[in-house]
Amino acid sequence: MTAESGQDGLVLEDVRIALGERRLLDLACRVAPGEILSVTGPSGSGKSSLFAFLAGFLDPAFTVAGRVRLDGEDLLALPAAQRRVGLMFQDDLLFPHMSVGGNLLFALPASLRGRAARRARVEAVLAEAGLGGYADRDPATLSGGQRARVALLRTLIAEPRALLLDEPFSKLDRALRGQIRSLVFDRARRLGLPTLLVTHDEEDAAAAGGPVVRL
């Protein structure tokens, strides 16, 4: 990480996204480490395009301008696989052909070597989240809340430098929603990750407690 403050975090410099003649988005902002920026707006306002743009999956049909820096590094110059930006979607997208532990091992960086060490790390992470002993479970046998937690753990265990959240709570029922929301925000703050939350739900934005951009 670069030491210069003011360089840290996720910085969007005059980002513009357009589809043909239609201007979708015009945004300049900085998300400091541990800060959660909420981007809200009705469907079609360009929220999803912004998400895809930052993650590196924007369809080439869109035209974009501007720069994005993550801890001082030019994010847009990197292919999606090298951005180290953790994603969470509406669906948990746990791989159904892997166990809970398998999903986490898949995400755990290869720099941690040795089967036993990797396994121990995964089990520790699960235990810390109240899912001790779940490593060998089939994701299909988990409850909605457990799945959401595993999805979060999978994102975090990959050691991302920033978090991008695309309506990650919208499919959870009300009771679960607040609980998972505070868990995600909590972890993001604790790990000092600049976090960008894309949502149509003002309640999510309020709970995030950070700045809000309305498109």
Partner: peptide, 24 residues
């Protein structure tokens, strides 16, 4: 979606496909 998720975790196209998509 599986490919994007794998890419966001740092996986290359082919490895991501073989490990995350092919088994399904």
């Amino acid at each position: 979606r599986a490919g994007r998720l794998a890419a966001s975790l740092g996986y290359g196209r082919v490895t991501g496909f073989l490990l995350a998509v092919l088994p399904r």
